[in-house]
Write a protein that binds this DNA or RNA. Structure first.
Lengths: 316, 316
DNA sequence: CTGAAAGCGCTTACAG
DNA sequence: CTGAAAGCGCTTACAG
């Protein structure tokens, strides 16, 4: 910038004004001259310097969070990476950049944000009871995906009507004559989207005067169980169960595979309905019946919300 | 930092020395005092300031590159995200951070690197003939994944013996009595890993005195074809073909699905062998026979190479 | 419309 | 072992 200013015989200030397109502040003539020099030298602004002055960077942190010791690889789950795809697309179009990390504690999140003075943060996997802690420790806008929480100032959420979605899933099985329908989810059911989905499941059973049977609720704790022992629990009750609703396609696919290996025919012995409509779900056999949600759109939505809030902040 | 220095009654310099663990330069007593204050205020260094001084940040760019107009979402491919998982893990353990973006031009890559003064870059999808251009425009260490290129100074590659891997895949079909084996890959075959795999395919056919039949080479151009018309080409030759080798599981899964929809039984009508051993490959039906490669390890490897080079740079 | 000054938080020589 | 100075590249008031 200094060199450009020298070559154009203007001050650094003027170059800065040109870069920031403050047209009213620079004559067209000098602007043109400076732009030429900028292009000639292929000048790129140094983000570190800018961030330092502004005490905020053009970085958005994208965090995959899972507060458990398990050595699970969060990037293996297509749901997470489809969200990432949406975020990538929108931020790129708006000259923001994406800092990605998977973490297992909230403190790691705080550290990233402070270290890089990120403009905002998008997080997957936060539980409702963690939101207030999060809010106290982060002073940039926060967007949570699939966390069911009241909108507080500074905390925005992206989600769908999970309860209704799951009513649809459950209703589908009922419509096909099923009564003994198992509910299969990951373990942290309290407060998360899975609770909403559970409520949708209950809604439908109740509407059809079917009693909720605790024995048909299967919760997969990824850290304490393996898929084999988990599916055994379902196998034990196979003569009773005729249908299963899953809160996630990814889980449905894994369980289906395990059940098939144990000689259970799907859908002949047990019918299955998933949730998410992951792109891989169409490749299972039989094709997984699933409730669609547009995952990439969730990511785009999250990014848009963040950008909007950031714009408003700037105007104040 | 200034505040910490003031409270400890030392200079900023001394605080800096403590933070960087230059033990020889600070007495144990002052060190302890300073560390206490650092903890008390939960001090986190400002990376922007550091990057500015060093003219290099603790950011590593992870780029998914595809030089085509197609609107393909690169995060949808589990291969890419499994690599990402490996990179994430290693960088996190070494206090580096990950800047992720999918791009469609080399210029976008250069821009990211200059803008953020990244310490290094890991790229997927570079073709061999693009390497020299890349090298001329990037002055940080570059690690290319699955690009077949001679090792030049500053450009490192992570890959496997693709030719041998594909010999194994092809040999598997031969061993099962197949002779008319189709080779299915994505379109950009020249110079990439697919060429190595093609050579492996040729090796085996030749060894068994089977002539290469141009009509059995299927190249899927994602931008110009759709899966339906592509699989039609295979269907046309279904009475002749008895086996197919695929250069990627992801492609195999999509094609298999399409073929099944068109009434082709797998493996009864046509046997299929994939490549990669994606975690989702085990969920297809029939389970995809595939040549294993440890994808996450490729990502870890890439990160390790980068860190090693960075360490060596520092020592000079 | 243009410019000189101060400062963001840190590090790197260098002097004591 | 400790410190004062200069500077990284940029922006934000402010003065002309």
């Amino acid at each position: 910038m200094k060199d450009i200013a020298k070559e154009a015989n203007v001050s650094i200030m003027t170059v800065s004004n040109v870069i920031h397109k403050r047209k009213s502040k620079v004559s067209e003539k000098t602007e043109k001259k400076i732009l030429e020099i900028i292009n000639k030298y292929n000048y790129t602004p140094n983000m570190s310097a800018r961030s330092l002055v502004n005490n905020s960077s053009k970085l958005i942190a994208f965090i995959l969070y899972q507060n458990r010791k398990g050595e699970r690889n969060l990037f293996e789950n297509p749901f997470n990476t489809e969200v990432l795809a949406g975020v990538d697309k929108v931020l790129k179009e708006n000259d923001y950049y994406l800092l990605v990390q998977s973490v297992s504690t909230l403190e790691e999140i705080y550290l990233i944000i402070k270290t890089w003075r990120t403009a905002g943060v998008i997080i997957l996997g936060i539980l409702p009871n963690e939101v207030s802690h999060l809010k106290e420790n982060i002073d940039t806008p926060i967007v949570l995906i699939d966390t069911v929480t009241p909108n507080e100032a500074g905390v925005y959420t992206v989600g769908i009507d999970d309860r209704n979605g799951f009513q649809i899933a459950t209703e589908h099985l009922i419509a096909n004559g099923h009564k003994n329908i198992g509910f299969v989810s990951y373990s942290q059911i309290l407060g998360g989207v899975d609770e909403q989905r559970y409520l949708g499941y209950v809604d439908v059973l109740k509407a059809h005067h079917i009693e909720i049977n605790e024995n048909l609720l299967f919760r997969y704790n990824k850290d304490k169980m393996n898929m084999d022992t988990f599916s055994d629990e379902i196998v034990k009750k196979k003569d009773f169960i005729t249908g299963l609703v899953f809160t996630a396609d990814f889980l449905a696919i894994e369980v289906m595979d395990s059940l098939k290996n144990k000689g259970i025919a799907i859908p002949d012995d047990i019918s299955v309905v998933g949730f998410d409509n992951l792109s891989i779900s169409q490749f299972t056999s039989p094709k997984l019946t699933t409730v669609h949600q547009d995952i990439t759109t969730k990511g785009q939505e999250a990014a848009h919300i963040l950008l909007k809030v950031l714009m408003e902040k700037k105007l104040n």
